[in-house]
């Protein structure tokens, strides 16, 4: 950490921790405060011709982009070398798969944003938070794709830089200097992506954490007993508390 300027520490140590704290606490808070609002907010009822192409392209694209980030940021270089993947092979894989996935994501996103803007009912169902989130997400994805494509010509090896810094955040071994030395597009991508995490719990992105994987194993029909001693729809809230006073 020595040699890092105050700005570097603010940008690459304080900022990530603040945003991650908001991310974690925000989700906890949202889940407790707003289970009812925790949804995908699908607009398929209004329009499905464009959605049929845009949504799967975007979602499957971004799933692969996520897996790519798990590989690139989460797995140290020494591990991949240990199983015999050469740097060259690794980069070839990362660039091809990353570019294809990123391209799908971008195309899907363009279709979805076009749909959201041009289909009247969909646009009027768009909240301000949605718009802000789309903007940030689009910038992050564009920068990310630029970084991936830039790998073809660029010299920068993010696995020696950004990745170590990223893992360090979770291991409390801080390397703001590595980030400070990264190219500008990587810095911007990282900085804005971290901001996206801070936004996350307050947007419709929360539906990511509802990915219904458990559906594959659970029984088809769910039975549930009425909650003990309570009828009607909802727990009685404070305003409805029955008075026990004897009159």
């Amino acid at each position: 950490m020595s040699g890092a300027s105050t700005l570097d520490i603010l940008l690459w140590v304080v900022w990530p921790y603040v945003c991650l704290a908001v991310f974690v606490f925000g989700h906890w808070w949202r889940y407790h405060y707003d289970k009812f609002g925790w949804t995908t907010r699908s607009s398929q009822l209004y329009e499905s011709r464009l959605l049929r192409w845009g949504s799967p392209l975007f979602h499957f694209g971004i799933l692969f982009v996520f897996l790519g980030h798990v590989m690139g940021l989460g797995v140290p270089k020494s591990w991949t070398s240990a199983v015999g993947i050469s740097d060259h092979l690794y980069h070839l894989m990362a660039i091809t798969i990353g570019a294809v996935a990123g391209f799908c994501t971008i195309v899907g996103m363009i279709i979805l944003i076009y749909r959201r803007r041009t289909v009247g009912p969909v646009f009027s169902a768009t909240t301000r938070m949605d718009k802000a989130m789309y903007l940030v997400l689009a910038v992050v994805i564009l920068l990310g794709l630029a970084n991936t494509v830039g790998q073809v010509i660029g010299e920068y090896d993010y696995r020696e830089g950004v990745s170590i810094w990223f893992r360090g955040i979770f291991r409390f071994s801080l390397h703001p200097d590595l980030m400070a030395a990264a190219p500008l597009t990587f810095q911007l991508h990282g900085f804005i992506a971290i901001f996206l995490f801070a936004m996350w719990p307050f947007t419709r992105l929360v539906h990511v954490f509802s990915a219904p994987i458990g559906y594959l194993w659970r029984p088809y029909i769910v039975y549930r007993a009425k909650p003990e001693g309570r009828l009607g729809s909802a727990p009685t809230r404070r305003g409805w508390d029955r008075s026990d006073l004897k009159r």
Partner: peptide
């Protein structure tokens, strides 16, 4: 009425009771 995260988000008073 719109909640903070879109229509109907946030705690609702339930219509049933």
């Amino acid at each position: 009425v719109s909640g903070p995260f879109g229509e109907g988000s946030g705690e609702q008073s339930q219509p049933i009771a």
